[in-house]
């Protein structure tokens, strides 16, 4: 079993109103050195497959086809072996 850990991030030039609201709240809590907050999506997908290259090809396509919107988002991922239970 392999697991993909996928981060979907807003592109740097896209405003993130959620991140801005979190920054404001952190300032109110006294974290005055906080400069910027960006809120992202984190997605885990597990595969019944041990072939890392095959899984990576699929993850790349899954991200490009569905999980990320190419207009506004970038994606990165890592692929890891899942621990046996």
């Amino acid at each position: 079993m392999l697991q993909a850990k996928i981060f979907i991030r807003l592109k740097p030039n896209v405003l993130d109103p959620q991140g801005k609201a979190v920054s404001n709240s952190l300032h109110q809590l006294g974290y005055v050195k906080v400069v910027e907050t960006r809120v992202s999506k984190y997605i885990e997908i597990s595969f019944d497959d041990d072939n890392e290259q095959a899984v990576e090809e699929q993850v790349q396509k899954i991200c490009a086809d569905l999980l990320a919107n190419p207009n506004t988002e970038n994606f990165t991922y890592t692929i890891e072996k899942m621990g046996t239970v």
Binding site: L15, P17, N71, T72
Partner: peptide, 17 residues
């Protein structure tokens, strides 16, 4: 329509959340 590429651009969360 934007998600199936019949129109360009995207609709993001309102600036006021």
């Amino acid at each position: 329509l934007t998600e199936c590429d019949l129109l360009p651009g995207s609709l993001l969360m309102n600036s006021g959340l």
